[in-house]
Amino acid sequence: MNTQSAAEKMLETGRFYTALELGQEFKESAKRASGWLFNIRSGARYKTIETELPNRKVKLISIDGRTMPLNKLQNTALLFKRPRLLVGSDSHA
């Protein structure tokens, strides 16, 4: 799990997330998810909407100008849903 994976999930769902909610989504600690949110909020690649403190929530709007999740873009380009075997797999070839 990394910042990019968290960002893709946030873009896919379109929801506002706290560190706790994001951590629960990936079965990770809130502290680790807080780091991902910090990277997303401060990174030049990501455009976000943030609520005020306390209980800041972050919603990801785009990644490198892309407003659609990568898996949805791939499905659209292929004109069919990618086979489950290929989705999220690490090729060891």
Rank of each mutant, 00 (worst) to 15 (best):
M1R: 07
M1Q: 11
N2Q: 03
N2W: 05
Q4G: 04
Q4T: 09
A6E: 00
K9W: 08
T13M: 09
T18C: 05
A19D: 06
L22E: 01
L22R: 03
L22I: 06
E25V: 07
K27M: 08
S29Q: 08
K31P: 00
G35P: 03
G35H: 01
N39V: 00
R41P: 01
S42Y: 09
A44D: 10
Y46A: 12
Y46E: 11
Y46D: 07
K47C: 03
K47Q: 14
K47W: 00
T48Q: 04
T51S: 14
T51I: 07
E52F: 12
N55E: 02
K57G: 02
K57D: 00
K57A: 08
K59P: 00
L60Q: 07
I63A: 15
I63T: 08
I63V: 15
I63D: 12
G65N: 06
G65C: 07
R66F: 11
T67R: 13
P69K: 08
P69N: 04
N71E: 04
K72Y: 05
N75M: 03
N75H: 13
T76K: 14
T76Y: 04
T76L: 13
L78A: 13
L78D: 00
L79W: 02
R82H: 04
P83A: 07
R84F: 08
R84S: 14
L85Q: 12
L86A: 12
V87T: 11
V87P: 00
G88P: 03
S89H: 10
S91I: 14
